[in-house]
Write a protein that binds this DNA or RNA. Structure first.
Length: 237
DNA sequence: GCGACAG
DNA sequence: ATCTTGTCGC
């Protein structure tokens, strides 16, 4: 997929809501368009990790898009953009704050990619329209959400073990569907990290993606790199 | 009414 | 997310 073209197309009809009621309506429409289906990891050559950092004083944001080889995790391309922030942080409405700078960064990417990984939840959201799902729907690209804290959903009791991690599934108490998982390093007392379905992936695929991009640290390597690049223009005085 | 609350 | 140095712990 040619990410820059999809980003420019998505930018055309992206409008910031004037009220939270309007934002909620948009999210309900987004949720209807989310498509849950397995992906074949073998077909993924390039993936993109995204992160956005904020400058408290200038009110600016920096969005970083890191294209990496899905097999080797080697970085292939990086884009960092600066943009004014035009929407406050309100839990449940993160997408309206971060999607504009994210689309800007994605529009700068020359590489093609088959998957996007972003910081934040996908379907694990009160209206099933978290950042990862919202972004995936407007781009029409597969997305997976990775978050450091849980916003919505109930953690199931059963614990699964796979490779060096253990996880418990998380379901939406309103639909009774499993949309994500709480993951910890096997044996160790690490703070959990949360993975959820974004768009055009299913839960199994999302977990496989996480297993693919993680390393010995809590935050998967490509997301750590995106975080680092999103802060490189920060000025220290 | 009270508490919770991605980044 | 951000404000921030040294410092407690594996």
């Amino acid at each position: 997929m040619i990410v820059s073209l999809l980003a420019l197309k998505a930018l055309e009809d992206f409008k910031l809501p004037k009220t939270l009621e309007e934002a909620r309506e948009i999210q309900l429409e987004i949720a209807k368009r989310v498509n849950i289906k397995p992906i074949n990891p073998v077909k993924i050559r390039n993936a993109i990790a995204l992160d956005v950092s904020y400058d408290k004083h200038s009110g600016k944001s920096h969005a970083a898009a890191v294209v990496f080889d899905f097999s080797s995790l080697e970085i292939k391309e990086v884009a960092v953009v600066e943009q004014e922030l035009n929407f406050p942080y309100i839990p449940g409405f993160l997408a309206f704050r971060e999607i504009p700078p994210i689309l800007d960064a994605l529009s700068c990417i020359k590489s093609e990619a088959e998957l996007i990984i972003c910081e934040g939840h996908g379907l694990l959201h009160p209206r099933r329209a978290g950042l990862a799902s919202h972004l995936g729907v407007i781009l029409d690209m597969p997305t997976v959400g990775v978050a450091k804290n849980l916003l919505f959903g109930k953690v199931d009791n059963k614990t699964f073990f796979e490779e060096d991690i253990e996880y418990r599934l998380i379901f939406d108490p309103e639909t009774n569907e499993f949309y994500g998982a709480e993951i910890v390093k096997k044996g160790l007392n690490y703070k959990p990290i949360y993975v959820s379905i974004g768009h055009l992936v299913d839960l199994r695929s999302s977990l496989l993606v996480f297993l693919r991009i993680r390393d010995r640290f809590r935050i998967p390597k490509p997301l750590r790199e995106a975080h680092k690049f999103s802060r490189i223009y920060r000025k220290k005085d």
